[in-house]
Design a binder for these strands. Structure first.
Lengths: 219, 219
DNA sequence: AGACTTCGGGAACATCGTTCGCAAACTCAG
DNA sequence: CTGAGTTTGCGAACGATGTTCCCGAAGTCT
């Protein structure tokens, strides 16, 4: 019997003896991701995922300790999607390239930013990505703690951008509705000016902010 | 009848006519925060909050469109806690001071980081905080879009730190359990080295990373 | 005083995560 | 080949959740 308090990555997938399992963790993860891609995070219920697989909901508990495990598996599965190019020597450029891969993954899976931000857990694929970032930062002075911090912040910043971008795209008026009301009161001139800037066309290209952040962090 | 698609801040609180309400939005928000402070976010159910107030669960829907509204109210209520000191001229220092106030608020309300990260919404108190940041950045070149970005990132970074800090404090072994296993395989020397650095005592003082980020962003 | 409107909240509904228990499917020792 | 042992699949059930309905109670306004 495997310890239930261990992360799922350390629990044995199948038993050597007894009736063989009909499915694998990977299949279940893929089904969960399919459901999420189609209906968002809230659609990822045990019953929905089971339906996607054509099984009963209770069967999932043979592969996973609960819904949380499922979410962890989903996150780590997507962590395999970014292409990890060999370091070029330009640390900031390498990291922004990785960040762009991350962003593309999050566009492909709109439910991902929320999970990444809420659920800090490192699975095998996330460790591979971390290893890649450590590779890029090999020549960088500073201990592992600082580099781990950079990795965490890179993920968080990209996820935050992705989340905000999506919110602005899905409900454009809702996002600024209250700001507009505040501006209308005339009591906060700085907010009013801000709204005028938001109305202007966006000529900045994405990634500027991230480059600035990374430049600061790498000192 | 107020439009249900509007953010809650634009919906009238009480009706002018008819039976007067026995409670206020503020009371309900305070009850929800009390429940969350005591039992975490998942304890914030309509029934629990109603119990805290001594009312029925269905009554809450007279004040709020649903649980999501309640969460928005909670977030904005905490946005009033940070003290907003007048700008000194040192932008980075002023922003890190604000960030420290934010962090303290999140320590007081451990459920807050998750909401801040997941739910980008600006209520009256959040707008006041934004206004303060705009005040600090008054002399800064760059349009409102960039400043709004700085505000969003400031919140996100502080919340990310708070979340990770809490996870590390609550389940210290769980966080690195899998990393330790990866190191034990010997197949990822960079991860092994990272773990050794993590074992060493932490001599960096908090806020270094944020200062670096802000310096980069403010160029 | 009567029409009107809002509020409080018990009851009910759909859905959720999860547990239980048992029949079926398989491995392995003898 | 057999039977003991182990694991899997999963229908049924439990408790908790968010939310809606409905109606009596409690006010305001003409």
């Amino acid at each position: 019997m495997t310890d239930d308090t261990e992360p799922i990555w350390l629990r044995a997938e199948r038993a050597a003896t007894g009736r063989p399992a009909e499915r694998s963790r990977a299949e279940i993860t893929a089904a969960a991701i399919a459901v999420a891609d189609r209906g968002g995070l809230e659609a990822v219920s045990m019953r929905n995922v089971a339906d996607e697989l054509g099984t009963g909901a209770a069967s999932l508990y043979r592969y996973v300790n609960g819904r949380d495990d499922l979410l962890d598996l989903m996150v780590d599965a997507t962590a395999a999607e970014p292409r990890l190019e060999p370091p070029t020597g330009d640390q900031v450029a390498d990291l922004t390239a990785f960040a762009e891969e991350l962003r593309a993954t999050m566009v492909r899976h709109p439910w991902l930013p929320e999970l990444v931000l809420t659920r800090p857990s490192l699975g095998p694929n996330a460790v591979a990505a971390l290893d890649h970032v450590l590779d890029v930062l090999a020549d960088h002075p500073g201990d592992g703690r600082a580099k781990l911090e950079i990795f965490a912040l890179l993920n968080a910043v990209v996820a935050t951008f992705a989340l905000n971008e999506r919110a602005a795209a899905d409900r454009p008026e809702q996002a600024v509705a209250y700001l507009r009301h505040v501006a209308a009161t005339g009591r906060r001139p700085r907010i009013t000016a801000l709204l005028e800037d938001l109305a202007a066309p966006d000529d900045r290209h994405r990634g500027d902010a991230l480059t600035a952040i990374l430049s600061g962090l790498l000192r």
